[in-house]
Design a protein around this nucleic acid. Structure first.
Lengths: 213, 213
DNA sequence: AATGCCATTCAACGCTTGTTGAAAAATAAG
DNA sequence: CTTATTTTTCAACAAGCGTTGAATGGCATT
């Protein structure tokens, strides 16, 4: 049957609910109820509500950063001195996020939506995004700088901003594209999203950051 | 002195606070306090908290849609039968959002951040975005379809999704790019954002939706 | 001066919230 | 089996929530 600990069930429930309704849109009683435990148990394991939120956010971040960094290192090793292409770098940035949804566990899907929630919020973004993802992002930007030697740093950062925005809306899985396209496209189809996003973003980088080699 | 009505002060305060903390992150007492009025006055003018939220969201939507549609109609009239280019269409989609921040009134800036909040949330997006913005978006997509005659509808919608994501993160003004770039780029600089976003997105559309004419 | 009407405040309601300390149950150690 | 230790529940708290009805104020029209 269900062999996962109550502690983990709280994390799972909180993850799903925070992702859907945000920090303030969810009560500890809703989380406890969804996890099938008493409301006081969340406090026993995690302390205050904010600490539970942080625990949810931290749980999967190391694993995610690691798999993205590995993907980057792999193409870097492949391409040697000349370094990977823009497409390869963006592919390494995005594809690891896709793998996380091939499993039956919906946890990763909820977690990615939570990242979108945090990243799109000034209030939460400042508290959580930089601490956990800045190093990784700078690593990718450094790789892009090498692949686009004519780019100014300003252009590079604005282009990354566009990439980050497109990615964030994808992770949010708002189903807006499902409605707009009349069902032709589906928010849940990360593979289709990245299949389109990678050439789209790569062309954008090249256009703005002018690569003539 | 301050000649704006208390009713409008409530809308302004709610707009700023909802944009920063979301619907559930703000109390009516905070809104009333920020507006300098009694908490019961919000209820008198707008009814329930949710109706106040809707009132805030509706207030500027017609004006915004109108100015974007006018911008599209203008380039359409200019270009006649052959229709406007991808760049012109995207320009018409984005630039009206920039004008709204040239005024000293911070209201529009808060409103755009609120749109970003709603658009990035499944819960609120379904309730509010479609109703107010779908017609306009379909109009722009139709124009893009004409400018990119070889594009499949799927490709077109996914490209629009990327555009919408980049725009949404810009509207959110999270100041993440400020931190990442070490102050080189600023979230508040919509003009720089669109100067980079327009060629970026246009190149993406052309790459994915293959224009060979 | 009196009247009616809208705008605004006051005071309070019932309810839910996050949090806590003590009791109880389950598990591990001796 | 007994004793510690950890996990879980129970019961309750003070605080803050959205909302409401009645009272007050200001401002026209009569």
């Amino acid at each position: 049957m269900t062999s996962i600990s109550k502690r983990d069930r709280i994390l799972d429930a909180a993850e799903a609910l925070f992702a859907e309704r945000g920090f303030d849109g969810v009560t500890l009683r809703q989380i406890a109820s969804s996890a099938g435990v008493d409301v006081a148990l969340a406090n026993y394991h995690f302390g205050k509500k904010l600490e539970l939120f942080n625990a949810v956010f931290d749980r999967r971040s190391a694993l995610l950063n690691q798999s993205r960094l590995e993907a980057l290192r792999k193409v870097q090793a492949q391409e040697g001195d000349k370094g990977p292409s823009v497409e390869q770098i963006i592919e390494a940035f995005l594809r690891p996020l896709e793998l996380t949804q091939e499993t039956a566990d919906p946890g990763w899907r909820h977690y990615l939506a939570l990242i979108a929630y945090v990243n799109n919020s000034t209030y939460w973004g400042k508290r959580m995004m930089s601490k956990l993802f800045d190093d990784l992002v700078q690593e990718f930007i450094q790789a892009l700088r090498k692949a686009l030697p004519n780019a100014s740093d300003q252009d590079l950062y604005w282009c990354y901003h566009n990439l980050s925005g497109a990615l964030t809306l994808t992770l949010a899985q708002t189903e807006r594209i499902d409605a707009l396209s009349g069902g032709l496209c589906r928010s849940s189809d990360f593979q289709a999203a990245y299949d389109h996003m990678i050439p789209f973003v790569a062309a954008g980088f090249r256009q703005v950051c002018g690569a003539q080699d």
